[in-house]
Design a protein around this nucleic acid. Sequence first.
DNA 1: AAGATTACGTACTGATAGGTACAATAAGCG
DNA 2: CGCTTATTGTACCTATCAGTACGTAATCTT
Lengths: 201, 201
Amino acid sequence: MASGRKKAFNESQALEAAMHVFWSKGYVGASLSALTDSMGINKPSMYSTFGNKEALFIKSTSHYVESQMKPHLQHLYQANVPLLTRIKNYMLSIVSMQFNEESPKGCYLVLCQSELAGGEVPEAASELLQELDDLPKVVIADLLNSDSEAKQLGLDTRSNEIALTLYTVLKGSASMARSGIAQEQMLPVVDNVIAGLATRH
Amino acid sequence: MASGRKKAFNESQALEAAMHVFWSKGYVGASLSALTDSMGINKPSMYSTFGNKEALFIKSTSHYVESQMKPHLQHLYQANVPLLTRIKNYMLSIVSMQFNEESPKGCYLVLCQSELAGGEVPEAASELLQELDDLPKVVIADLLNSDSEAKQLGLDTRSNEIALTLYTVLKGSASMARSGIAQEQMLPVVDNVIAGLATRH
DNA sequence: AAGATTACGTACTGATAGGTACAATAAGCG
DNA sequence: CGCTTATTGTACCTATCAGTACGTAATCTT
């Protein structure tokens, strides 16, 4: 049984390229032509490989979460590092990604999610965004609930509140990155907020 | 000299309607058809009255700033109210607008500004957004620099840093509003951050 | 009432959106 | 080599985008 002509492009490289286009233009702003141009393929190849624009977006979003979001989580579980330092390192690591010169500024999810309420993003993609976007908040809350140091500091009794506070700052930071301020300005902001946590009971 | 047929619509009501469409869909997502439908007029009327889509957007954005942003600033200058309480009232007032059921969730400026980096918004409109978006940050920094109570609390020496911190939280809150959480969850976040300011020197 | 002036409604423009039909090309298998 | 299978490029589809031409309707001044 013949197996046909080989693909002339690398599927995961094409997905990476698509991710960058969605990241900089959003779901609505990323046209198929812009996508396929950056991916280095033409439209029929894109449709046969990924399905359609929405399916491409879903694969691209999953790739973003795996390659850009999850790696930062390791900072939260470093052995022999104080809890607040771990949280700070995690946040600084994400901020540093938001301001990275080699990829679009800000957060892919924030950008695309802002289009949700306008009904511009298809339902299935919209649900995925909603779900993925909660990830950091849930992880931080879980950490605060289970970490022994968090209990000593009395942070476990208001874990959801604190997780939401930190998460709100991260989202705000993504907005600030988009608006063009310098990364150095955000660092003391993270310091301030984390220091504020420690001084309450 | 004859003065012609009267307009069959109210110009400022039409602008208000356009503002809500941009607010919920963003600049790119708001199509002329959606705009004129909501405004209750047809396209030639829109073009003769406002110029084009970009000019309408600029007028709509100015209207947003005047009607939705500036009114909150009064909280910052209430007599006989402690500084941190004034700031807290200001922030809660904005958060409450972001979650208001009668208008789109989140912040008009955050939404539209997220499209900037993708080059989807025309230059002139883009510059206006950039400028207006700094307003709250500048106002808070100025307040911290001039207020006598701020000096007593030692907040004047890091006014820019604090203003940026508060502003980042407001932007984050706008994102959270878009993603659908309940307003009550944001209130302790504002509390946390402001309390954190007070406990540092 | 006549004429000038302005707004309105319909119907259109060229460009681009997402998506596809189809013929040509390249690979594996016998 | 010939057959089958899969990918590629071009050229097209319909719908919608921002924007406009033009004839009709309404209001003013004289």
